[in-house]
Design a protein around this nucleic acid. Structure first.
Lengths: 208, 208
DNA sequence: CGATCCGTTGAGGTGCGTCAACGGGAGTGG
DNA sequence: CCACTCCCGTTGACGCACCTCAACGGATCG
């Protein structure tokens, strides 16, 4: 029954790599759900410095908002399909479907926890710890979607990774080769990596 | 009516400076609301590195949680009074009081936006930009609570500021004196500062 | 097969961290 | 009220992790 109500107000949208889905500061008229593909979220400073605040994969939500305008921009990383909900209509449904609101609160709490982990990473971890944390994050995201998590596919380019981790592309690259040299990961082309010593990697990521 | 229901399940708690209110990883049995005083939230790495994830002031909420265990620790910065709600009882109320759930969702969205600003700050801003952003944040928090925001009271010590901004206490101190030298702020003892050129400060903070 | 883009590698610079000494404010006891 | 003490903050000298700038290499696509 609830799904019916939702289906009635959604539209399906396709985006090509690099296409802008929404822009920081724009009035928040839609919410989205990622069906397939991958998305990067980011904020910009006036001089062009960029901080990627997160990556989205199928099943993730996009557009939870506080002041009626988006807090970040979003672009497709790969060919991507999204479900789009008009925010006003969805909010109207919230009063009738309390389950839905509970789900949204759960999503928001989960994102908040992820944001706090990212704050810890950016504020206190070394470049090496950051990159390893990133690889493990990808691995967990892949495992949640059904893989073993041992081989991770890296959908984003080095500059997305760098802007996500608060580093430069050169530093990210150097850490990758360092991890390879030390036998901790194997690089399978530029877009995939195999995690060879998960336990050691988890220790590095957690700062031990 | 709603307030009555809430009052029925709350308890009032006092904390002295430095006292632990809740600990990261502990089962989340309570939610809190800050009545008076100030609180720091933080996470620790195994080797002791600390990241302060935020500061709370009267009116702020504490304990929104995702996995049944707290995502961060919280300590009183000053003598503090809190309202404490048992989480199970509060959740039971949620089904009956949808307004309350909407408020929680609003709070979570707001915190999420703040967390993303902090991510931008930690990932891409210089030490100077971070400290100025911090002073403006305090100024806005003070203005929201009724002051002009020109003179800000700095309730926390240098090490809290450093761990919040991803810096060391020495760097924080150096930036303070640099801002003083440049006539941008006046330091009124160690716990208060006057913002002399708000417009210039806002430009610095935003990275222009 | 060529062009272009992205990633890698190298050399050198710098912003912030580290380590150490100093100073000053707040509380305490005389 | 003063002197002592302790703690926190400040200042200085130096080092290092990461950034910057530059050249190179390799993948992808037409």
């Amino acid at each position: 029954a609830e799904l019916e109500r939702l289906r009635a107000i959604l539209a399906t949208v396709h985006c090509e790599p690099g296409e802008v889905i929404l822009r920081e500061g724009d009035p928040a008229v839609h919410l989205f759900n990622v069906v397939s593909g991958a998305v990067r979220l980011y904020k910009l400073l006036p001089d062009g410095r960029r901080q990627v605040t997160g990556f989205l994969f199928p099943g993730d939500f996009l557009g939870l908002v506080h002041n009626d305008s988006y807090a970040y921009s979003a672009e497709a990383l790969a060919p991507t399909t999204l479900c789009r909900f008009p925010r006003r209509k969805l909010e109207a449904l919230l009063d009738e479907l309390p389950k839905l609101e509970q789900r949204l609160l759960g999503i928001a709490s989960h994102e908040l926890a992820a944001a706090q982990d990212q704050i810890m990473l950016l504020g206190r971890k070394s470049a090496r710890e950051r990159v390893v944390s990133f690889l493990l994050m990808l691995s967990e995201a892949a495992a949640r979607r059904g893989g073993s998590g041992e081989v991770v596919s890296i959908a984003m380019g080095r500059s997305d990774i760098a802007d996500y981790l608060g580093l430069t592309i050169e530093t990210v690259s150097r850490v990758f080769t360092e991890l390879k040299t030390q036998g901790l990961v194997r690089l399978l082309g530029q877009k995939r990596a195999q995690l060879l010593k998960p336990k050691a990697l988890r220790e590095i990521a957690s700062g031990a």
